[in-house]
Design a protein around this nucleic acid. Structure first.
Length: 265
DNA sequence: AACGTCTCCCGCCAGC
DNA sequence: CTGCTGGCGGGAGACG
C-alpha cells in the first residue's frame, strides 16, 4: 500500500511478547486478514497487550471482534464501509482517535501520529511527548473536538487546578500574570504550582505564557489592521521590544516580517 | 548592545 | 519507606 515495500524481519511470533501492537492501514478493507493474524491479536489482547490501529487498520481490529460494542475511529473514507461490515462496532468518524485504554483506534495517517503521541504521553508524560512531537515537527496536541475526552475522563476540567488556570489566563492574555498570583488563584504554593504546571503542560508557567502570547498574536498580525506594537500590547507584552524579542525567538521572524509574508500570500 | 534589577525556575532538603 | 509538599538559594533569563 502506498507504493513502497515494508520488510518484516520478524514474524507474527514476535507479537507474543509485544506490549503495544500498532496496526497500520490494511491493503484490502473488504477482506478479512488471515485467521492466524486474528487469533494472534486476540491472544495478545487477552494477555494484556495494548492494540493501536491507524487508518484502515481498524478493519483488522474489527475482524478480531475486539471492537464489538466499542467506539472506534477510522479514516472518514472508510467509516461507512466499516460500519456496514461490522455493525456491532460504534464507528465515530468525527474524532482523531479513540482511547479505550486497552485498544486505541485512530483516523487517517496524521491522526495515527496524534494517537501514538497520546500513547507516549500517557506512558511517559507530557514533557517527553512534547520532545518527541518537536523532533517530528508536529503539534504536541491537536484538539479533535470534545469527543476526544469522552472515553476516559482522567480529570474533569473544573476539578483540575492547572486546567482552570490555563483557561483563566487564556481569557485575559492582555493582563499581567505573575506566577505568585496564579499560584494563589490555584490555591497552591508557588513552588507546587510550578511543579504541577510543568507536569501538566510540559513547560514552566512563564515560558508557557510567552508562547501563548506569541501564538495569540499570529492571527492578529494576519488579519488585524492594528500596528505591531499595539498587537503586542493587546496580547500582554508590556513593551514592543519584549514582543519583538519573544516573537523572533519562537517564530523565527520579526512580527513585521511575518505580517508581510502573510499579506503577500 | 550593554547593564542593573527583578522574576522565574529548579535542585535540594526537611516535614508530614 | 514512599510520595507529596513548601521554603530556600542561586543561576538563568526577562525587563526596562
Amino acid at each position: 500500500v502506498g507504493g513502497f515495500t515494508v520488510e518484516a524481519p520478524k514474524g507474527l511470533r514476535t507479537l507474543a511478547r509485544a506490549d503495544t501492537i500498532v496496526i497500520p492501514g490494511t491493503a484490502d478493507v473488504r477482506r478479512d486478514p488471515s485467521p492466524k493474524v486474528l487469533s494472534t491479536l486476540r491472544r495478545a489482547h487477552e494477555r494484556g497487550a495494548r492494540l493501536v490501529s491507524v487508518c484502515s487498520g481498524a478493519f483488522v481490529l474489527a475482524a478480531t471482534g475486539l471492537l464489538d460494542g466499542r467506539r472506534a475511529a477510522t479514516h472518514w473514507r472508510y467509516a461507512e464501509l466499516l460500519q456496514q461490515r461490522f455493525p456491532r462496532v460504534e464507528v465515530d468518524s468525527s474524532v482523531l482517535y479513540v482511547d479505550q485504554g486497552d485498544i486505541l483506534t485512530s483516523a487517517g495517517t496524521a491522526a495515527g501520529i496524534d494517537a501514538c503521541l497520546h500513547v507516549v504521553r500517557t506512558d511517559h508524560g507530557v514533557a517527553v511527548a512534547n520532545r518527541v512531537a518537536r523532533r517530528m515537527v508536529v503539534a504536541p496536541h491537536r484538539d479533535g473536538g470534545q469527543a476526544q475526552f469522552i472515553e476516559q475522563p482522567l480529570a474533569r476540567l473544573e476539578d483540575d487546578p492547572i486546567a482552570t488556570i490555563v483557561d483563566h489566563v487564556r481569557k485575559r492574555l492582555g493582563e499581567g500574570h505573575s506566577v505568585e498570583d496564579l499560584a494563589a488563584r490555584a490555591h497552591l504554593s508557588p513552588r507546587q504550582f510550578s511543579r504541577r504546571f510543568k507536569a501538566a503542560t510540559g513547560t514552566s508557567p512563564a515560558r508557557w505564557l510567552i508562547r501563548e502570547r506569541v501564538e495569540a498574536s499570529l492571527p492578529l498580525l494576519e488579519n488585524d489592521t492594528r500596528g505591531v506594537e499595539e498587537i503586542g500590547r493587546s496580547v500582554g507584552f508590556n513593551s514592543p521590544a519584549a514582543f519583538r524579542r519573544h516573537f523572533r525567538a519562537t517564530v523565527g521572524l520579526s512580527p513585521a516580517a511575518w505580517r508581510a509574508q502573510f499579506r503577500r500570500a
